[in-house]
């Protein structure tokens, strides 16, 4: 286990930068939801973004995927193309997609149709049987194949989380942004989602996770980015972050430090 970790550390420095966030800001009428944030995400990384409520994590996701246009700043993809302000479907075609904080399945469609939809824009000329096979394969990767004919509105919450994940995976993105993938899941369901995320990452997909369940997050990710009131206040491995004074202050307040 330790050897694989060190191998990953070594290869980490050789990886190319997938996306570079430069001076990214988003202001809502004076409220600085995201304020001058800079960081880089390398290809194949598994990154966690944490921060207290209202820290701007979801706004950051919306900026990265084009659902909001930044007030200022750049998002450089592959060290050449600025994707800030493009519409979400164009960004999805460039290989960045997301899931939502609350599950948002297509309720009246069944599970198979849910995973068919993301395959359509890429493959307009493929035969429908091929399309169906691809969609079925997406369901198999998250263990939902036996429920493929169930309409989404009758599936339980844990299944819907995985369905959302499968749907986003079906876009075959280079970078996947997961907004609270473990929220509202039982321990067992969270474990299944965790395994699915880990498998996807091992195949080379860059994954960014926003999550409040720090215990799961810290054992899953390689690097953590901490936001507080729209500002980036810390960046590093989970161990470094756990010992970072500023982060502890932001999360637990100044009094917590006095108790130590």
């Amino acid at each position: 286990m330790t050897t694989t970790f060190s191998e990953k550390q070594v290869s980490n420095s050789q990886r190319s930068v997938l996306i570079e966030v430069q001076n990214l800001s988003k202001h809502f009428e004076g409220l600085k939801a995201v304020d001058d944030v800079n960081f880089k995400i390398k290809a194949g990384e598994l990154i966690g973004i944490i921060g207290p409520n209202g820290a701007g994590k979801t706004t950051l996701f919306n900026l990265l995927t084009g659902f909001l246009k930044p007030t200022k700043g750049k998002l450089i993809l592959d060290e050449k193309k600025n994707i800030a302000g493009l519409s979400p479907h164009k960004i999805a075609k460039l290989g960045i997609t997301r899931t939502f904080q609350l599950v948002r399945p297509f309720k009246l469609l069944n599970a198979l149709e849910n995973t068919t939809v993301p395959h359509i824009p890429k493959s307009k000329l493929t035969r429908s049987s091929t399309l169906k096979n691809k969609a079925t394969w997406s369901l198999i990767t998250v263990d939902l194949a036996e429920k493929k004919n169930y309409p989404a509105f009758i599936l339980p919450h844990g299944d819907l989380k995985r369905l959302d994940f499968a749907r986003a995976m079906a876009v075959q993105p280079r970078m996947l942004l997961l907004d609270e993938p473990f929220a509202g899941l039982s321990v067992e369901e969270a474990f299944r989602v965790e395994r699915v995320i880990r498998e996807a990452n091992e195949k080379g997909m860059t994954i960014v996770i926003v999550e409040h369940k720090l215990k799961i997050l810290m054992r899953l990710v390689e690097r953590v980015i901490v936001l507080h009131q729209g500002k980036l206040i810390g960046e590093g491995t989970p161990k470094e972050i756990a010992n970072n004074d500023e982060v502890i202050t932001a999360y637990l307040g100044t009094e917590a430090k006095d108790y130590e």
Binding site: F67, S87, H89, T97, P105, F106, P121, K122, A170
Partner: peptide, 19 residues
Amino acid sequence: LVFQSIREDEDAAESLGIN
């Protein structure tokens, strides 16, 4: 199918690359 997905959830459909 795409039409239905737009009816069900516009944002989700757009995040999946649907124009």
